[in-house]
Amino acid sequence: MKKEIKDEITDIAPKLSEIGNRNPYRVPVSYFDELAIDLDTTQNVPEDYFTHLSDQVLSEVSAEKETKVFTINRRIWAAAASILLLCTVSFYTMTSTQPSENELFVLDVELDEAFEYLTIGDDLYMYDVYELGDIELWEDTEVMLEEDRDLETLLDDATLDELDDLLY
């Protein structure tokens, strides 16, 4: 294990550091010798597979376009519903001096729980959002959600000690 990797965890995870990073997995004999051959266009895909691939890709793109139109419409509906909800909540808040159930719930959420939800939970992450739009991550690497940018700017500016304080 590289010294840099070991030093990084020795203090916070001494037992993990002792285990090391040897690879416990194995592969069948000659697997890597045959992998490239398996993927060779003449050996492992049907004849003319790549010739007809463009037609296949075009039909997939066409199907994706339909999905995207639906997604945009759904987003418009979601935005309209959010605005309506916001107006309703604002009206209620202005006319009520008692905290709502939602407000009371949010007050009970620990900071680290909120942080985990925003950064590493399964529910909100750029991969999920890309998949919602049927856009694969590697197709457009420059697009990033504003929420991710804001969060990442905060995290970029934080030192590791500050992150520790935030997490624990």
């Binding site: 995870a13 985990e116 750029m126 991710d148 995290l155 970029d156 992150l163 997490l167």
Partner: peptide, 24 residues
């Protein structure tokens, strides 16, 4: 991964702590 260095450090740190807890 298309994620900032700061976010990755935080995520890795958190993962290491979880794994250490599990090992213990």
């Amino acid at each position: 991964l298309g994620t900032s260095v700061g976010a990755l450090k935080a995520s890795y740190h958190h993962a290491v702590k979880k794994i250490e807890d599990y090992i213990n």
